Simulated assay, not measured.
Amino acid sequence: MKVLKWLDEHFEEAILIVLLAAITCVMMAQIIARTFAASMTWPEEFSRYCYIWSVFLSLGYTVKKGNMLKVGVLMDLFPLKVRKSIEIVGNIIMLAIFGILFRYSIIYTGKIKTMGQASTAMGVPMSFMYTATVIGFGLAVFRTVELIIYNIKHFDEKAETTLEATLKEAQQEVQVNAAGANKTGGKA
Rank of each mutant, 00 (worst) to 15 (best):
I86Y: 04
N67A: 13
G66Y: 07
M122P: 06
Y108K: 10
I93D: 00
M68S: 05
L101M: 14
L101V: 03
K65D: 09
V63M: 09
M75A: 12
M129Y: 11
R103M: 07
A96Y: 07
I100M: 12
I106P: 06
F137K: 03
T131F: 13
K65M: 15
A96K: 03
R103W: 15
K65S: 14
V89K: 06
T133Q: 10
N67W: 05
I135F: 11
L57N: 10
K84E: 14
N67P: 00
Y51G: 15
I88A: 06
I112F: 05
I88P: 00
N91D: 08
V89H: 03
L139K: 10
V89F: 13
M68N: 11
Y49G: 02
L74A: 12
K113F: 11
Q117Y: 14
Y61N: 08
S47V: 05
V124W: 01
R48C: 06
E87Q: 11
Y61W: 14
K64M: 12
G99A: 10
T120G: 05
N67T: 03
L77T: 09
L59S: 04
M94Y: 10
A121R: 02
S127T: 03
M122Q: 05
I86P: 01
M68R: 06
E87A: 10
I106V: 15
F128M: 08
F128S: 01
R103K: 10
I52C: 12
F98V: 03
E87K: 13
Y130T: 07
Y108V: 04
Y61F: 15
V55K: 05
L69W: 06
S85V: 02
I86F: 14
F98N: 08
A118C: 01
T120F: 04
M68H: 13
T131R: 02
Y104M: 04
L59Q: 06
T109L: 04
P125W: 07
V55C: 15
V71R: 12
L69F: 07
M68F: 09
F128T: 03
N67V: 02
Y108H: 08
R83D: 05
L59V: 01
R83M: 05
M94T: 02
A96E: 01
V55H: 07
A96N: 00
